[in-house]
C-alpha cells in the first residue's frame, strides 16, 4: 500500500518535473515553429474527434469518414514534415530555404485535398 502511494507520488513528481522542464525548454523554440505546432495539435484534435464520432455513430459513410480522418492525419503529417524542415535546430536540412519547403508543403497539401475531395463524395 505504502509503496503504491510512494510510486504514485514519484510518478506525480516526475511528471511535474517533466512538464515543467518541457515548458521551459519549449519556450525557447521560435515563434514560427510554435505556430506550426498549434496547427499540428489542431489537426490531431480533429482527427481524434472524428475517430470518436465514428465510434459513436458507426462506420456507415465509411468513405466520408476515411476522407475526413485521413485529411486531418495528412495535414498533421505534412505539418510535422514542414516543421522538421524549417526547424533551425535541425542539421539535416541546412541548405533548404523555408520558402522552398513551404512551396513543397503547399503542393502536397493541394494534392491531399484533391484526393480527399475525390474520395469524399
Amino acid at each position: 500500500m505504502d509503496s503504491v502511494t510512494n510510486r504514485i507520488h514519484d510518478f506525480k513528481s516526475n511528471a511535474s518535473i517533466i512538464v515543467k522542464s518541457f515548458n521551459s525548454e519549449y519556450k525557447k523554440t521560435p515563434l514560427r515553429i510554435k505556430v506550426i505546432d498549434a496547427f499540428i495539435v489542431y489537426a490531431l484534435l480533429t482527427a481524434a474527434i472524428q475517430f470518436l464520432y465514428m465510434l459513436c455513430v458507426g462506420t456507415f459513410p465509411f468513405n466520408s469518414f476515411l476522407s475526413g480522418f485521413f485529411c486531418s492525419l495528412g495535414f498533421f503529417v505534412l505539418s510535422v514534415s514542414l516543421r522538421m524542415q524549417v526547424d533551425p535546430s535541425s542539421t539535416e536540412f541546412k541548405g533548404l530555404l523555408p520558402e522552398r519547403a513551404y512551396a513543397d508543403f503547399v503542393f502536397c497539401g493541394c494534392l491531399l485535398f484533391l484526393v480527399v475531395w475525390n474520395f469524399m463524395g
Binding site: G74, V80, S81, L112
Partner: peptide, 17 residues
C-alpha cells in the same frame, strides 16, 4: 531521420487514400 519521415509518412497517407 527526418528525411525518412518525410519520405514515408505522406506516402502512406496519400497512398492509402
Amino acid at each position: 531521420t527526418a528525411k525518412l519521415y518525410i519520405a514515408y509518412a505522406p506516402l502512406i497517407i496519400l497512398g492509402t487514400l
